[in-house]
């Protein structure tokens, strides 16, 4: 049965019959392991030189304002930045624990989770995990609740608070349209002069990352960030410096975030459909019992009065 988790979640909202819902839960959890040929990006932090060309290219291809300050200005690295409504990606600098070695630059953007928390938190299905791997956003249905901002384990989506009309949630799209319709690479990947970013099928990228780690055990930490974190992400990282020293959150676990709420959320329709029927039944039953008791009481009073 080819049913996706997204379709399933939609179905559960509309489903009325409890039995059908229960069997769908079991099947969806058992069979869905993600789109087989989904794409991803591997960031090799040992190669990144911090030129911020990716920020520039990202702004260009997504019609965002050019990065401020300009890539020539190194003062930008004095503080750790986050993605915001005007930048889908930012590069931060972290000192190398070995003072003889150059600092480490870390590009930050949407990780495009295999099972996105933003999508599961969204009330109106504005987010979707595409077969190409990207997690995309549909502004036309968004109601602006910003649950996605709170749900994201990487604190990535940003909101256009300064727009009075039609504010949007802003986040990296992995250049979904460029990749799917124009057959191009994502803007940042295309421009990276040292190819610290590699675009390809996620399964190929994991192989590539493993090969690099095996070939250079002294150069790399034996960990692919994003292979298993929060159930796996399309954007992955390898590094020579421990991830925890580069601002990566290491206690996210490997359970997909939607998993935490699935039990509760899937019981909501059951509760909504069964509880009214059940309690109405209980109510009707007890009312009927009271009526009978009352009638019996009345008749016995009459009998007592008569006697």
């Amino acid at each position: 049965m080819s049913i996706t988790r997204r379709q399933f979640l939609g179905m559960t909202g509309a489903a009325g019959a409890a039995g059908l819902v229960g069997s769908s839960v079991a099947q969806a959890q058992e069979h869905f392991t993600g789109w087989p040929d989904r794409y991803g990006v591997l960031t090799d932090l040992t190669l990144c030189i911090g030129c911020r060309k990716c920020e520039e290219a990202c702004a260009r291809v997504n019609d965002l304002p050019p990065p401020e300050p300009s890539p020539e200005d190194k003062s930008v690295f004095d503080e750790i930045r986050r993605t915001d409504a005007q930048s889908y990606t930012v590069v931060n600098r972290f000192p190398n624990p070995d003072p003889d070695k150059p600092p480490v630059y870390v590009k930050k953007q949407c990780m495009h989770c295999n099972e996105p928390a933003c999508a599961s938190a969204c009330l109106v299905s504005a987010f979707s995990k595409t077969p190409e791997g990207a997690v995309t956003y549909n502004a036309s249905v968004c109601i602006g609740c910003r649950y996605c901002l709170m749900a994201c384990p990487f604190y990535i989506p940003a909101y256009e608070y300064d727009k009075a009309l039609k504010p949007r949630v802003m986040k990296c799209t992995m250049c979904h349209d460029r990749v799917k319709e124009e057959g191009k690479l994502p803007g940042c990947v295309e421009v990276c002069p040292v190819q610290a970013l590699t675009f390809g099928k996620r399964s190929d990228l994991i192989r590539l990352a493993r090969e690099r780690i095996i070939r250079n055990p002294d150069k790399y930490i034996d960990h692919i960030y994003g292979e298993h974190e929060v159930g796996g992400t399309s954007w992955m990282y390898i590094t020579g410096v421990p991830f925890e020293q580069l601002g990566f959150n290491m206690d996210l676990g490997i359970t997909p975030y939607p998993e935490f709420t699935r039990g509760f959320l899937s019981s909501v329709p059951l509760v909504l459909t069964l509880w009214p029927v059940f309690f109405t039944g209980v109510y009707l039953f007890s009312r009927r019992r009271n009526e009978i008791a009352k009638e019996e009481g009345d008749s016995s009073h009459e009998e007592e009065a008569k006697s």
């Binding site: 295309e190 040292v194 190819q195 099928k201 590539l208």
Partner: peptide, 26 residues
């Protein structure tokens, strides 16, 4: 040109820059 189907090797530009930048930036 980059190959999305087999991304194992960096492109020529990436390979040149990876080789040169490592020392030149040092």
């Amino acid at each position: 040109e980059p190959s999305v189907e087999s991304p194992i090797q960096p492109t020529l530009k990436g390979a040149y820059h990876q080789n040169c930048m490592a020392c030149h930036m040092e």
